[in-house]
């Protein structure tokens, strides 16, 4: 395998890992506050649709991003209504949100564009263009490092950089700010937060709103950057892979980066090769696509390091007498 090939596989790892990363961080905020979120998939999907639709109509990718974020937040709000205000089952709400997203995107898409649920192809300013970092062109000639800088580090959509910046930002917010302290506390013991005079409901809604924003960016990236337009079910299980990555990362931001990039790498490799031959072993690419899920089951089983979710996760908060 040549150096060029490695760089190009890593390059697509970053492209494919970014939506996972954003969605995974979204799940991290939500679940750290005690709200299970299996609706990452649905939120990404609506965002992918509305961002592409608005970007197409206005010709402006940034307006598309706003629409994507707004639609994802509406879905996040529905989840909040069900799981925080009305203390319903968070998992059932998540299932409903995913279904609603896959139905409504096609329904509205067909109504608006008459293309069977997809948007017309995006081009020009309707799509996020790759950003060339300074000196990428100049350093191209430097052996190895130049290629790495030009191909791997430079030349991604601005949303990729946003995604990567979100990792230290999430870490900082979570562990260095008042909001982060309260957020982590409300996911572990909401009664402690409540008796300390802080609103459990407000905290959880803010966590869910952040999750909405991040899923909005992730969905927008899918349709307005990675692809050029919306396609039916285009999230293709990425929300669930992000969920798997979140467990794999044990609800921690830096680990989330590692887990999502690992899963991005698996995706990149299976896209590139139909089968992988390691000596006598033929690994079919269907296996590669199942690896994130298998790894997560192994982690969940606790054979390799136990993944302990936030203690109050999944349970609506009811004041006790």
């Amino acid at each position: 395998m040549s150096f060029d090939t490695i760089v190009s596989i890593l390059d697509s790892t970053i492209r494919l890992g970014t939506p996972l990363l954003l969605a995974c961080l979204a799940g991290l905020f939500s679940e750290r506050s005690g709200i299970f979120d299996i609706g990452l998939e649905g939120k990404m999907l609506v965002a992918a649709f509305f961002s592409a639709a608005v970007a197409y109509v206005t010709g402006n990718a940034w307006l598309g991003l706003l629409a994507g974020i707004a639609s994802s937040m509406v879905f996040a709000f529905i989840h909040g209504l069900a799981s925080i205000t009305f203390r319903g089952n968070q998992l059932i709400s998540g299932v409903a949100i995913n279904m609603l997203a896959s139905g409504i995107t096609v329904l509205i898409g067909q109504h608006w564009f008459h293309l069977g649920g997809i948007t017309p192809a995006l081009s020009g300013g309707a799509r996020f263009q790759d950003v060339a970092l300074p000196f990428a062109q100049a350093l191209k000639g430097v052996p190895y490092l130049g290629l790495v800088y030009d191909q791997l580090i430079s030349g991604h959509s601005v949303l990729v950089y946003v995604g990567f910046l979100c990792v230290p930002a999430t870490w900082w917010v979570l562990f260095k700010t008042r909001f982060g302290l309260r957020l982590r506390a409300v996911g572990e013991n909401p009664a402690a937060v409540d008796t300390a005079g802080v609103s459990v409901v407000a905290l959880r809604y803010s966590a869910i709103a952040i999750a909405g924003i991040l899923c909005g960016i992730a969905g927008t990236y899918l349709s307005c950057s990675l692809a050029a337009g919306f396609g039916r079910e285009m999230t293709a299980g990425r929300g669930y892979i992000a969920l798997a990555a979140l467990i794999f990362a044990k609800w921690r931001p830096w680990y989330a980066l590692g887990a999502t990039m690992l899963f991005g790498l698996l995706d990149a490799v299976s896209n590139r090769y139909q089968t992988i031959d390691i000596g006598m072993l033929h690994i079919p690419n269907q296996f590669m696509s199942a690896v994130p899920f298998i790894l997560t089951v192994v982690i969940l089983a606790g054979f390799v390091g136990k993944a302990i979710p936030p203690r109050a996760g999944g349970e609506p908060y009811v004041k006790e007498r």
């Binding site: 562990f175 260095k176 700010t177 008042r178 909001f179 982060g180 302290l181 309260r182 982590r184 506390a185 572990e188 013991n189 009664a191 402690a192 937060v193 409540d194 008796t195 300390a196 005079g197 802080v198 203690r311």
Partner: peptide, 25 residues
Amino acid sequence: KLVHNFTVLENIVLGAEDGALLGPS
């Protein structure tokens, strides 16, 4: 009403922080 995996300090400060940043509190 304590958060089991927080330190004593974090539990004491929770809800009575002085500012948006945690360090000074």
